[in-house]
Amino acid sequence: MSTAQSQAGRLRWPSTPRPTARGVVLVGVVAFLLAYALLPLLTLKPAYGSDLTPPKVIADVPLRDAASGAPVSFSSARGRTLLVFFAYRRCPVVCPAILAKLARAYRQAGEPGGVRVSVVNVDPSDSPAEFARYVQRFHPAFQAWQADAPALARVASEFYLLVREGTTQPIDHTATVNVIDPQGRWRRLYSDSFLRTAEYAHDLRAFSYGRY
């Protein structure tokens, strides 16, 4: 037998280390904790409001950004979830109450980047700049949209809203929060102004994960 063959015969390949019982337990504990942490995200879904099935595709209506004057539309917001609310600056009680609640819920949900709140002015005669400042006092990320009278009539029709001259306040209008998914479909409706902040925040988190 040659020297090389003799040395090869003495070589031993390193054996694969066998997992110890302690290592197996540690891996199991880590896997359990990870699954426990992810479970709420995997099961998260909206729990409040009304599910609109089948969803309606919202038609494009030409609107303007109240702060910049730039044209905006529902299609220009595709790729993000929109919470669309209709309000006006002189609204005495309901509009500011719902906007304040949405702002608190948005912060409580962690201000998800894939979700935007867009507020459409139901008072075409109002100053767009003043309306934008009004909306952004609730949250600087909220978008203020302005519509002229014909556009407002069209967008109100899309969402089946009542908008008319008020009797006990300047304007009467339907105070619903409407959820539009990234494909421009109307997926959810909140008509209960008594919904709690935490309940809005829960559903905002679900929307940020694409659950409607």
Rank of each mutant, 00 (worst) to 15 (best):
A59F: 00
D172F: 05
F142K: 00
V117K: 01
P182T: 03
A100N: 03
D203M: 05
L189G: 10
V93S: 14
D51K: 15
P40C: 05
V117M: 08
D60H: 09
Y88T: 06
R64V: 11
P96I: 10
D123W: 04
S68R: 05
A151P: 06
V72D: 07
A198M: 11
V27N: 05
G49E: 02
L44P: 11
G69W: 10
S68V: 05
V94W: 14
K45A: 13
D172N: 08
W145I: 02
L161C: 06
R18K: 13
Y160S: 15
G210V: 00
A175P: 12
G69R: 14
V30I: 14
D60T: 11
A153I: 06
A144Q: 03
P17S: 01
L82V: 01
R116T: 12
R22S: 10
T174E: 03
L195E: 09
W186N: 01
A8Y: 12
E111R: 15
R164N: 09
D60A: 12
F159N: 00
A59K: 05
V135G: 04
P96T: 06
A47I: 13
L162P: 04
P55C: 05
L162K: 08
D51G: 14
L204E: 06
L42H: 07
D203K: 00
T176P: 01
P14T: 01
L161N: 04
F74Y: 13
E199A: 09
R104K: 10
L52W: 06
Y88I: 02
R205T: 06
Y209F: 13
S50K: 14
V94H: 15
R104P: 00
S127Q: 00
R22L: 11
S193T: 15
R164Y: 08
K101D: 04
V119K: 00
L204D: 05
V61H: 05
L41W: 13
I58A: 11
A206I: 02
L34W: 08
T168V: 13
V179N: 07
V155N: 01
V24G: 09
A109R: 04
Q5F: 10
F159H: 07
P54N: 04
F131L: 07
L41D: 15
L99T: 03
Y190V: 00
A8V: 14
P128N: 08
S73Y: 03
D148H: 10
A201I: 06
G110H: 10
Y106A: 05
S76Q: 13
F131R: 03
D65W: 02
W186D: 00
S68L: 08
D123T: 07
Y160I: 12
R104Y: 09
P46Y: 09
V24A: 10
A105S: 02
V163K: 07
P62E: 12
C95L: 09
A175M: 12
R211D: 06
R154C: 12
I180A: 08
L82A: 06
A70I: 07
R78G: 01
L195R: 08
R90I: 05
D51A: 14
V163A: 04
G79S: 04
V119P: 02
D123M: 03
L195V: 09
V177P: 02
A105L: 04
E199Y: 14
Q183C: 11
R116D: 11
A153K: 14
R116F: 10
D123S: 02
E165R: 12
Q108I: 06
Q143W: 10
V93H: 14
T43M: 11
T167F: 08
A100Y: 06
V24Y: 11
K56F: 07
